[in-house]
Structures are given as structure tokens and as C-alpha cells.
């Protein structure tokens, strides 16, 4: 059986990661993704939605995206809600975002700059 993950292993990860860190700390050039994580969002599956976004970003090696969460914004029946805010562009809010939609949003919108109109609600 493989040894249980240990803190020592983290040392190795640190060594690997520190060379790859994007040293640019200016958040203005980064895309922000905000996932609704209120009770309504969580009950609708927002945890898996956000993990899918993180996974897709990791697979594609994108480190200029900040993923955060927010509480309930009063549109509970549309949860999970995901906002994509690109630098100098208006916020785009996607509704009922499951894992599959989440991955497509990363590819089409975040990478290729194509808003998926069918899943968007008008700017609120």
C-alpha cells in the first residue's frame, strides 16, 4: 500500500510549484469566475460546478483566472449561477450551470471569448 500523503510530500510540491508561479500579481488582467455558493447554490450542485471549473482550468494550465464564490443573490431557481468577468468587459451570468456546462464555459467563453448566449440571463 502506498504511504499516506504526508506534509513532507508538500515540500516536493512546493519545489515544483514555485518555479511555475505566475509572478504577476495584478488582478486587473485576470478573468474572474464567481460561483453562487449560498444554501440554494449548494443544494443545486454548486460544489461540483466549481470543482469542474477548477479542474478544467488545471487541465488547460490557465493561471490567469481567479475562481471565487458568492452568497445567494436572490435568483435561487437559476442556481448554480456562474458569473464570468473578463477584464474590461461586462459581467456575464450563466444559469443552471452543471458540471458539463461549466467545462464548456471555460473552453468557449474563458478561452475562446465566445459567450454562450443560450445559457445567459440579461445583465442584472
Amino acid at each position: 500500500m502506498a504511504a499516506i500523503k504526508s506534509i513532507e510530500e508538500l515540500e516536493k510540491i512546493r519545489e515544483q510549484a514555485k518555479d511555475l508561479i505566475n509572478l504577476r500579481k495584478d488582478n486587473e488582467t485576470k478573468t474572474r469566475v464567481v460561483v453562487g455558493m449560498g444554501t440554494c447554490g449548494i443544494a443545486a450542485g454548486a460544489r461540483q460546478t466549481m470543482l469542474a471549473i477548477l479542474d478544467e482550468l488545471k487541465k488547460r494550465n490557465l493561471d490567469n483566472v481567479i475562481v471565487t464564490e458568492t452568497g445567494c443573490i436572490g435568483l435561487c431557481k437559476f442556481e448554480p449561477l456562474v458569473d464570468v468577468i473578463k477584464p474590461n468587459q461586462p459581467k456575464v451570468t450563466y444559469v443552471n450551470v452543471n458540471e458539463d456546462k461549466a467545462r464548456q464555459i471555460v473552453v468557449k467563453h474563458i478561452i475562446n471569448n465566445q459567450i454562450i448566449d443560450d445559457w445567459v440571463i440579461p445583465n442584472i
Binding site: 514555485k18 508561479i21 482550468l57
Partner: peptide, 14 residues
């Protein structure tokens, strides 16, 4: 403490 300057939200750390 172990990671020092590497952010905890780094995908490898997650």
C-alpha cells in the same frame, strides 16, 4: 507554513 510563497490554491496543492 510548509508552502511558504506558494499559494494554497495552487492546483497541485489542491
Amino acid at each position: 507554513k510548509t508552502l511558504q510563497d506558494v499559494p494554497i490554491s495552487n492546483p497541485m496543492v489542491l
